[in-house]
Measured scan of single mutants.
Amino acid sequence: YETDHQDYCEVCQQGGEIILCDTCPRAYHLVCLDPELDRAPEGKWSCPHCEKE
Rank of each mutant, 00 (worst) to 15 (best):
C24Y: 00
L20S: 14
H5M: 15
C21T: 04
D38V: 12
C21G: 02
H49G: 11
G43V: 13
C50D: 07
E2P: 09
R26T: 12
P41H: 04
T3K: 15
T3D: 07
C12N: 02
E51G: 07
Q13A: 06
Q14S: 07
K52R: 12
L33D: 01
K52H: 04
Q13L: 10
E10L: 15
K44R: 12
D4I: 08
V31H: 12
E36R: 12
A40P: 08
P48Q: 10
T23E: 10
D38S: 09
D4G: 12
D4C: 10
C9P: 01
D38Q: 04
C12M: 01
I18Y: 14
K44H: 12
E53G: 09
C12F: 00
L30V: 11
E51P: 07
E42C: 12
Q6E: 06
W45E: 09
I19H: 09
L37G: 09
Q14T: 10
A27M: 06
G16W: 12
C24T: 01
G16R: 14
L30S: 06
H5T: 14
C47A: 00
H5D: 00
Y1R: 04
D34A: 06
E36V: 11
E53D: 04
C50F: 01
Y1S: 05
I18N: 06
G15H: 15
C9N: 04
L33I: 06
C24L: 02
H49W: 06
T3G: 14
Q13G: 07
C21I: 01
L30C: 13
C24F: 00
G16V: 09
C9Q: 02
R39P: 09
D34M: 03
G43Q: 12
R26Y: 08
L37F: 03
Q6L: 05
D7M: 09
D38H: 13
H29P: 01
W45T: 08
Q6M: 09
L33R: 03
V31N: 04
L33V: 07
A40L: 09
E17S: 09
G43Y: 05
K44E: 09
R26G: 10
H49I: 15
H29A: 01
P25W: 08
S46W: 10
C9V: 02
G15K: 13
P35H: 10
Q13Y: 11
Q13N: 09
E36C: 14
E53V: 04
C21F: 00
L37A: 13
I19L: 13
Q6Y: 05
E2A: 05
H29F: 00
Y28M: 15
L20R: 14
C9H: 01
H29I: 00
E51C: 08
D38Y: 02
D34V: 09
P25K: 03
E36D: 02
W45D: 03
C9L: 01
V11H: 15
D38R: 04
H5R: 13
E17P: 02
R26W: 02
T3P: 09
V31W: 05
A27K: 03
Q14A: 10
C12S: 00
I18T: 14
E10P: 12
E2Y: 15
W45L: 06
A40T: 07
E10D: 14
Q6G: 05
K52M: 08
H29C: 12
V11E: 15
S46Q: 14
C47M: 02
Y1C: 15
C9G: 02
Y8C: 06
E53Y: 01
D7R: 05
D38K: 02
R39A: 13
K52C: 05
C32N: 01
V11T: 15
T23Q: 03
K44Q: 12
L30Q: 07
E42I: 04
V11W: 05
L20F: 12
H49C: 03
C47P: 00
L30N: 07
D22S: 12
Y8R: 15
K44I: 15
H49D: 07
H29N: 03
L30H: 10
E10W: 13
C50H: 05
Q13E: 09
I19Y: 13
E36G: 11
C32G: 02
E42V: 10
G15P: 03
E10M: 05
G16F: 08
E53Q: 09
L20A: 09
I18L: 11
L30G: 11
T23N: 13
D34Y: 04
L30I: 05
G43N: 14
D7N: 12
E53S: 03
E42T: 07
T23S: 12
D34R: 06
K44Y: 03
L33P: 03
P48N: 11
S46V: 09
H49V: 14
L20M: 12
G15Q: 03
Y8I: 15
D34S: 08
Y28L: 10
L20K: 13
R26L: 14
C32I: 00
G16Q: 05
C32M: 00
C32Y: 01
L30M: 13
E2G: 11
S46R: 11
V11I: 14
Q13K: 10
Y28F: 08
P48D: 03
G43P: 13
K44D: 04
C9E: 02
K44A: 09
D4F: 10
C9S: 02
C50K: 00
W45C: 07
C12T: 01
E2L: 15
L20G: 15
C24R: 00
P35M: 09
G43C: 04
H29K: 00
P35F: 06
T23R: 07
E10V: 14
P25A: 13
I19D: 05
P48L: 07
D38W: 04
Y1L: 14
E53I: 04
E10I: 13
T3I: 11
Y28Q: 03
Y28V: 05
E42F: 05
D7Q: 08
C32V: 00
G43K: 13
C47F: 03
P35T: 11
E51Y: 02
G16L: 09
D22Q: 15
P35K: 07
E2F: 15
Y1W: 15
V31R: 10
R39S: 12
Q13T: 11
R39N: 12
D34I: 04
H29R: 01
P35W: 07
S46P: 04
D4E: 11
K44T: 05
I19S: 07
W45V: 09
P35I: 05
V31F: 09
L37I: 07
G15I: 07
G43F: 05
S46L: 11
P35G: 10
D4R: 06
I18C: 02
R39L: 08
C24A: 01
P25T: 12
P41K: 05
G43H: 09
P48C: 06
E17Y: 11
T3E: 15
G43E: 15
E42A: 07
D38P: 08
D38C: 05
Y1I: 15
C12E: 01
Y28W: 14
I19V: 08
E51W: 03
C50Q: 02
D22V: 06
C12D: 01
E2M: 15
W45Q: 14
K44W: 02
V11Y: 13
Y8D: 10
T23I: 07
Y1E: 14
G43A: 04
D4W: 09
G16N: 14
Q13M: 13
Y8Q: 15
D38G: 08
E17V: 03
H5Q: 14
P48V: 08
A40R: 08
P25V: 01
Y8E: 13
V31Q: 11
R39Y: 11
E2N: 15
Q6H: 11
R26F: 04
D7T: 11
L30A: 13
R39E: 10
G15L: 04
D4S: 08
E2K: 15
Y1D: 06
Q14H: 07
E17C: 11
